[in-house]
């Protein structure tokens, strides 16, 4: 009986330790740079500025490093569904041709 409850407790403890909290992880941009995310949580504000740096969503704890294994486990499916980035062109028009016949 005692042994059974001990096992149950142990299991509950393990489960609690495994359950990862709600969190956000900054990743490298598709073009190689890294941006920034500010987490304004109910328990504090954290700023992520380095790739693979994560923070709990409540903002309570300072940022921490997130392993590739954990990223794959939690976000593998979402990351695999990311659409291809479209080619982007920014066009800048000179105003001068409009003024040319003045």
């Amino acid at each position: 009986m005692l042994r059974k409850s001990f096992v149950t407790l142990l299991l509950a403890g393990l489960l609690a330790a495994c359950a990862s909290p709600s969190y956000v992880v900054l990743l490298p941009d598709l073009d190689g740079g890294t941006g920034q995310v500010e987490v304004r949580g109910t328990k504090g504000t954290q700023v992520l500025a380095r790739a693979n740096e994560g923070a709990d969503l409540d903002g309570a704890k300072p940022p921490y490093a997130v392993s590739e294994a954990r990223l794959q486990e939690d976000f593998g499916a979402a990351m695999a569904a990311r659409p291809e980035a479209a080619e982007q062109f920014q066009l800048y028009f000179r105003k001068r041709w409009l003024d040319a016949d003045r």
Partner: peptide, 18 residues
């Protein structure tokens, strides 16, 4: 998210809400 607001400054990130 239920416990925060993320301000995005041109970037790539992943979020999980339990």
């Amino acid at each position: 998210t239920p416990s925060s607001t993320l301000a995005v400054r041109g970037t790539h990130f992943v979020v999980k809400v339990e």
